[in-house]
């Protein structure tokens, strides 16, 4: 593995850890943006240019901004008095450590039948576009419908006012 992989992986894991452990919510949002950027670089290092740039556009461009908006709208920038971790934090840590142990054990114990160094796949954005409107046209339409419904639903849910409030 190249040093770039270790550097980008360390950045991703450090960003994710900081997002989970830092106390001020705005710092968590910034740290999770670093983790998203690291994952985008990992996609790029896997020769998936389209997915990498989609990750940068959607996650760093939209989801991170959305999270910051939600934090500021809910006064999340103020630190809570009784700590940021839930009462059952120990159980959560144990469960996630167990999940990581199981996944890591499965990965390390597997016998790989795939070749160690596959040839770089030649996939252009043109190929992806053709596949999207050819083989994957039905999922594409469903995702379009889902995004429309989700956007309208999010606006309606967040806009809801109690009767007599105004």
């Amino acid at each position: 593995m190249s040093p770039v992989f270790y550097l980008v992986s360390a950045m991703t894991v450090a960003g994710a850890l900081a997002a989970v452990l830092l106390k001020p919510l705005v710092h968590c949002a910034l740290a999770v943006t670093v983790a998203f950027a690291g994952l985008a670089f990992l996609f790029l290092s896997l020769d998936a240019q389209f997915a990498g740039f989609a990750q940068i556009l959607v996650y760093i461009g939209a989801v991170a901004i959305l999270i910051v908006f939600a934090i500021l709208l809910t006064k999340g920038s103020e630190l809570p008095r009784d700590g940021v971790f839930s009462r059952s934090w120990l159980a959560g840590v144990v469960i996630s450590a167990a999940v990581f142990a199981a996944l890591g054990w499965a990965i390390l114990r597997s016998a790989w039948t795939l070749p160690h160094e596959a040839a770089v796949p030649v996939v252009t954005v043109h190929d992806i576009g053709v596949a999207l409107v050819d083989r994957y046209v039905l999922p594409l339409e469903i995702v379009a419908l889902l995004l429309t419904a989700a956007t309208i639903g999010a606006v309606i849910v967040a806009m809801h006012e109690k009767e007599g409030a105004k």
Binding site: T12, V13, A16, L17, A19, V20, A35, L39, P80, G83, V84, F85, S86, S88, W89, A91, G92, V93, I95, S96, A97, V99, F100, L103, G104, I107
Partner: peptide
């Protein structure tokens, strides 16, 4: 797997 476990921990331990 590491990122997944960290995300799971975040979803489980934060208030």
């Amino acid at each position: 797997a590491l990122v997944f476990a960290i995300g799971l921990a975040g979803a489980l331990v934060r208030r």
